[in-house]
Design a binder for these strands. Sequence first.
RNA 1: CGGGGCGUGGCGCAGUCUGGUCAGCGCGCGUGGUUUGGGACCACGAGGUCCCCAGUUCAAAUCUGGGCGCCCCGACCA
Length: 571
Amino acid sequence: MRVSQSFWRTLREAPAEADTEVYRLILRAGLARQVAAGIFSYLPLGWRVIRKIESILREEMDRIGGQEIRMPVLIPADLWKESGRWFSLDQSLWRIEDRNHRPFVLAMTHEEVASDIVRHDLRSYRQLPFLLYQIQTKVRDEPRPRGGLVRMREFLMKDAYSFHADVADLDRFYPCVYQAYINIYRRVGVPVVAIQADPGMIGGTGSHEFVARSELGETTIIRCTSCQYIASQEVAVARRPAFFTDIAAAAPPPQLIHTPGVTSIEALEHVFGLPPDAFLKTVVYSADGNLVAVILSGGVEVNELKLGRLLGATRLRLATNDELAAAGLTPGFVSPVGLRDIRLIIDESVAAHPYIAGANRPDYHLRNVLPGRDFPVTARADVATVRGGEACILCGSALVEETGLELGHTFKLGTRYSEAMGIRYLGPDGREATVVMGCYGIGLDRLFTAIIDSNHDEKGITWPAAVAPYSVYLLGLGLDRPEVLEAANRLYDGLHRRGIEVFFDDRPESPGVKFADADLLGLPLRLTISPRTIRQGAAEVTIRRTGETTLVSLDDIVEHIARHPVVTGST
RNA sequence: CGGGGCGUGGCGCAGUCUGGUCAGCGCGCGUGGUUUGGGACCACGAGGUCCCCAGUUCAAAUCUGGGCGCCCCGACCA
């Protein structure tokens, strides 16, 4: 492609809404344009990158036996009612109606449709297992689109669904997908770590997130500094004190203390001059309409995902002050002592020693509150958010927090959908059984962003060969001289014939502009041809990433480029 | 949805507090000329409902009210 004929333009200054380096590069290098919040168009060069990512995804999915299909964006609400998600998701599911007021949803994921397809055509265990996948548009009514292509309302996803006769077969297959994912990220040039994760709204029995270390991210990773433990903060666990009831008996009985206006742990620390874990925190939730009190050490926060899973609740939120009052509780001074008719969850951070806790009357706390004596410790569970600095569950070393960008997610769904939607088959024993499913997603736009995030410098992008929009930036200078133009054209044609993807900057721009644009776009290799190089019968070959430049004779430059490790991607 | 910020030629901004003399600057764009190895120079030129609607006023980019859009921070996820 000749730049003079290409719909491509770089920007010296990025639009003001771009507040991250990656997003600025995407806009400045002319790869994509925003249409509305969280809605984007890809321009020709950006789309070439997406198509290269797609082919890598296809290769890796096909390699593990995947079969590509294409499901619709527009889905009748009935399918979502059948799975139950029509009722359980209220935030991001985009609901619409047709002209006859029939409800539809815009696909935010495709478990329902995939299940629907399979249940009609699956009869026998002999057909199992199989993996269906697609690369397709997803639509979500995001509460807040963010960071350019990081969090979008319409985005591209490679989603895959596997179907198995039993859990053992899913367990056997799951590592294949895991490996395929690792291959994909390696091939596109983004270092990722796989972490234990929360299955979220997809549901299911086990899941991994593939995250890139990046300040763009929204995922908090908890990692052990000395062993292999790594998990999403959503599911991370830490070593907690054992609960020794025998120490308990000696403490004196609870005693009221006047604490006017002291309603937070922070304020208590200040008043008493004690560390946060000297206090008990009582947090009351409404879980599907029922109140639940969670008792934790003052030093930790509730992990609502853990709590929700523990309770099996679909709607979990903090109880309002009115709800507290109606249950006879005093906001700000709620106490675990004397709680009745309300479910109690004692977090594992609570130890069997005396605490200062709320007194359940305004402006009073209780000293010497002893778990197990002053309130029952029957339901002890881990519902706290793990923070950096806590002890690793495996080895006891310090944990640290890191920020990551989620690039993919794999789930063992189990029978969450196959049960609800009736995907059954006849087994070898002649009995009907329910299929076991897995599902696996990769967001392409976000991967696109992550590739640039992991591959740029202060001048611009430094594309990995496998996903670069073109392999070579052919930069011609002094093209108004016929002999130079002719040599440049010959070189362009020669590379083209050899199957090398060339972007030929034949514009009558000043050298500075062309070099700056070449650096910004960041194709792996730059070829500079000018009166100066022509005099030596050569052209300059520059590796974008290193700046390393060599002069290569025009006679064998095409072969030189064709075999260049930066072009073949063998580095 | 709560909190904060912004909306002026394609892009980046000034002007708004203190209404008139305000529609401007840089870049980009077009034409001609001179340049040509790291974002050249000269000359001429095109391009704006100042987000929208309503109001106040002799007069509104500027003041008031309402709406819309975009960005950022918190509850969701690829």
